[in-house]
């Protein structure tokens, strides 16, 4: 499988409108300033607690991040007379800050709203506590600003294992995916799969907003898996766990026979096991795919068939006097 660096993309900024649309839906963030400043942009996935900046120390004020007003900031501001507060807000708004989020459901000071409207800086509020909402916003921004890679592949959830089928055009990726769907597995995306790095060491896969569960089958054309097989046959996102590379059998290539050694491929700095599967007449790729998933599950829960067999052989070799080639030597009249 070839990973092309130029297919990796990353968002450089998002608008406040985009931020508000998603955070209001997912975490119930509300806007106290209507749609004022919705065309401003957020350029980095970090937050800032401006406690020191409010107190007057602005030397290292990370003003270009989302500003969080938590209990500390609010209690400090509450302890001041209104005139002093106004001066502080004016000082803060001298900087080009993207927006302010006030936590714990605290209503913003009227003078803050007034000045924000004048300066065109949005003020948002959340009923969640500072730690919780900070975590959620950072998690959201991390995903938005994450490296994304689009690959030409089919992505299916097989027994809960996210399996990505790659290979040349026309080798039968979509047909394998369709066969798996028919057997009760769930399609995530076909043809265009977008992989996003989530945290460290995790890749999440999804389809495009337009063509998520559409599929092209040579000779038939375009089908919609969701309307054809129902909602049980699809899902919208899945962690990528195994890559299966389909290729025409090449007699010069050595294919894995024991499975003791795992080959990994690095995608956006995440190692994912890759299995090369030669296509041969009479080979049922769907069943093999299911077996790959089951084997992955077994390994995940601590049972590695190749290792167990290899250990058994080792044991026998250490005690050759117990060695018997046949599994059963006395058949106990069980002539089945």
């Amino acid at each position: 499988m070839k990973i092309d660096k130029k297919n990796i993309s990353q968002k450089e900024s998002i608008t406040i409108k985009y931020f508000h649309k998603h955070t209001s839906k997912n975490f119930g963030i509300v806007s106290y300033t209507g749609e004022v400043g919705f065309d401003r942009t957020i350029n980095q996935p970090n937050l800032h607690r401006p406690g020191l900046a409010l107190a007057g120390f602005v030397k290292l004020f990370s003003y270009d991040r989302i500003q969080i007003f938590g209990n500390t900031e609010i209690s400090y501001l509450n302890s001041l007379p209104i005139e002093k507060r106004k001066i502080i807000f004016e000082n803060i708004f001298e900087f080009n800050i993207p927006c302010i989020v006030i936590t714990n459901g605290v209503m913003p000071f009227p003078e803050l709203i007034e000045l924000a409207l004048k300066k065109g800086i949005p003020i948002f509020g959340s009923s969640l506590d500072t730690t919780k909402i900070s975590y959620l916003i950072v998690d959201f921004l991390d995903d938005v600003f994450a490296n994304k890679l689009s690959v030409h592949a089919s992505f299916v959830d097989v027994y809960g294992i996210g399996m990505l089928f790659v290979g040349k055009s026309g080798i039968g990726k979509s047909e394998v995916a369709l066969d798996l769907v028919e057997r009760g597995h769930r399609l995530v995306a076909d043809d265009v799969v977008i992989l996003t790095k989530k945290g460290e060491g995790i890749l999440m896969g999804t389809g495009t907003s337009l063509g998520s569960h559409f599929m092209e089958i040579r000779g038939i054309g375009i089908i919609d898996v969701r309307s054809m097989f129902g909602v049980r046959a699809i899902r919208f996102q899945k962690r990528l766990e195994v890559i299966v590379e389909l290729e025409v059998w090449d007699p010069n290539q050595a294919y894995t026979r024991t499975g003791l050694d795992i080959t990994n491929i690095q995608i956006i700095n995440v190692d994912i096991p890759i299995i090369k599967l030669p296509i041969l007449p009479g080979k049922n790729i769907t069943v093999v795919a299911e077996v790959i998933a089951l084997n992955y599950l077994l390994k995940h829960y601590g049972y590695d068939a190749a290792k167990v067999l290899s250990e058994n052989i080792q044991k026998k070799m250490e005690r050759p006097e117990d060695f018997d080639i046949s599994n059963v030597n006395y058949f106990e009249h069980d002539f089945e």
């Binding site: 130029k6 990353q10 689009s150 030409h152 055009s169 265009v192 977008i194 495009t208 063509g211 092209e216």
Partner: peptide, 17 residues
Amino acid sequence: MKDGFSINGKSIIGVMT
């Protein structure tokens, strides 16, 4: 390639989307 996203030109769903 469009809007920073790259798709395989041999995939019809990709080109359409």
